[in-house]
Design a protein around this nucleic acid. Sequence first.
DNA 1: GACTATTCGACATTTTTGGTCGATTTATAG
DNA 2: CTATAAATCGACCAAAAATGTCGAATAGTC
Lengths: 220, 220
Amino acid sequence: MNELVILETAYRLFTIQGIQLFTMDEIASRLAISKKTLYRFFTSRQHLVQQVCQLVADDYSQAMETAENGKADNLQRVLGFMAANVAFCKKISFTFFADLQKHYPAEYLNLTTTLNAITEQRLLGVLEQGIVEGVFRGSLHPKLVVTILLQHIKRDFEFAAELVNDYSKDEVFRQAMYLFLYGIIAPNALPQLENELKQYSLSNRAAHTEERNNITQQFN
Amino acid sequence: MNELVILETAYRLFTIQGIQLFTMDEIASRLAISKKTLYRFFTSRQHLVQQVCQLVADDYSQAMETAENGKADNLQRVLGFMAANVAFCKKISFTFFADLQKHYPAEYLNLTTTLNAITEQRLLGVLEQGIVEGVFRGSLHPKLVVTILLQHIKRDFEFAAELVNDYSKDEVFRQAMYLFLYGIIAPNALPQLENELKQYSLSNRAAHTEERNNITQQFN
DNA sequence: GACTATTCGACATTTTTGGTCGATTTATAG
DNA sequence: CTATAAATCGACCAAAAATGTCGAATAGTC
């Protein structure tokens, strides 16, 4: 048994189903090891939680970096960031953050500020450059827009969990993403945005929607 | 403060977010009363859980009854049952049943057998009559079909919670419902089924889908 | 076979949570 | 207005659950 296997298992369990659901006994049991062994690698539960948080932050950081890499223009970069955020929000459950905030407030604060810093750092420059290029509206206050977006993401993340009866998380985050993009785009860059969105739409969601349309056609 | 208010609050909290998430202190706090007052109406936590289970069963029973009432033929009755099940599955979270099974196994067994009995009792007769009428396939073994359906519902209920990233619960349960209906319908009653489904589709989901189609049209 | 490293699961300790009780407040009747 | 009864509060207790520890047992190596 090694540290990485334990950490990845905890990461998977915590981020998908929440932290409090899993006791140290439960985690050890899932790994088919004893608690002693578990505590050999992680001196305390808090330590394990901290490491998982670190992994979450690293994951997001890397996703945002790859989203920016190889993109030709600033619009594509912002689109990449948005897609990365949708993927991230889908991967991490709300319960994870709720448990973290309640039972590990210090770690929660640390993680959220880190995540926000990553987003702000990446997005701000791209936004400012895009405004200069005229692809984003000139009336934007970049720093304020980023701050507002961060708050919106947080809120979307909260209530998306409550809407699962009627909408998939994918739908919710996608709508929120569209809202932001159409909110910042300059009028004459609108065709470019819609063209780019078509690409994204086709690559990710199209298979499902087309399939569904075929099925529903039978009923109408 | 009265018993009903407490019970309904507990019902709402438990069925939507799960049982174990709420301690007696938490429940009292939400009601803005003290624990003493709470224990005046419910002698123990188990007692409260039992009452909530009773309410769940009553709720389902009544939904199934109203689903059958005023229906002209057996196909419509089955459709009504299916719609009632979708509504029920959407209202009660999987966590509720998971918590119940783990921490109150006796109450879990009692509730599930009650719910299954209600479904079987309602559905069996309608199914048998429908077979005689020729609206459902003659090769059906009604009792076995009902048993299988109950198992399928249980399973759908479990994994629907895991699919919320990509599909809304509504979509999942609806697909499962279609599968069952097309599975039991007699070939020459197929047009009738499709006609009925159109009604249901329009009354419930159409507003959303149409709206969404309008939005997505902008991108394609 | 002796020595070391690793693992186990029972046990101790801490935290949490269900349940209780006297003190206090509020309502009601004379 | 006062006396009595009813209802409520929140500090407290006890039981349950979870974290963290330790000696014994096992596996591996020379």
